[in-house]
Design a protein around this nucleic acid. Sequence first.
DNA 1: CTCCCGATAT
DNA 2: ATATCAGGAG
Length: 220
Amino acid sequence: MKKRKVSKKEQERIDKILQAFNREYGLEYRCFLNYETPWQLLFATILSAQCTDERVNIVTKDLFQKYKSIEDFAQADQLELERDIHSTGFFKNKAKNIIECAKRLLYEYNGEVPKDINELVSLAGVGRKTANVIRGNIYKEPSIVVDTHVKRISQRLGLTKEEDPVKIEFELMYKLPREQWILYNIQVITFGRSICTARSPKCTECFLREYCKYYINHQK
DNA sequence: CTCCCGATAT
DNA sequence: ATATCAGGAG
């Protein structure tokens, strides 16, 4: 990312956007994936790659009834686990990763989900997005989760021009106040599912249109 | 860069 | 038919 300082005018625009998000969606933290324990959130998040959280929640409801512990996943038959998570897509990779991940949690982390970003990312099937979901939800560590919604909407709003999710993550950390990081993520996903959708965003009914670069550039 | 991949909306 | 979904790895 560019180290250039954010102009005062741009900083005011960003503040307006954040205020509008807070006004519209409130300050409440919530998780889009259902879970009871940290390791359940970890596996649910691995399953959520390129899959709706609604679908993941349907699958994990039965999955966590059947596999009640990390040990159950570590000892799981891979083909059977593939069938159990089939509808989330990428089921071969995900089943393999979850089993390998479960083993490492047991053998290297004493059955605990690590907090450190580098340790999290070293786990099978865990990238920065999954790692930051864990850090934000389990450890309340300020973190920005760059998923498909955060990427698309940050670009449309004009908060970044980058394509690389890691660059976007660092640019947003630089531009947004630390106490808003987790909230921004929650609000943007809510926003992205209802108004600022990937296909044909509902700009005419959008509460951010006066601050949005995308809206301005798509006005005739 | 490519591959992994089913379910749903458009 | 095609785009999209709380991406990650080789």
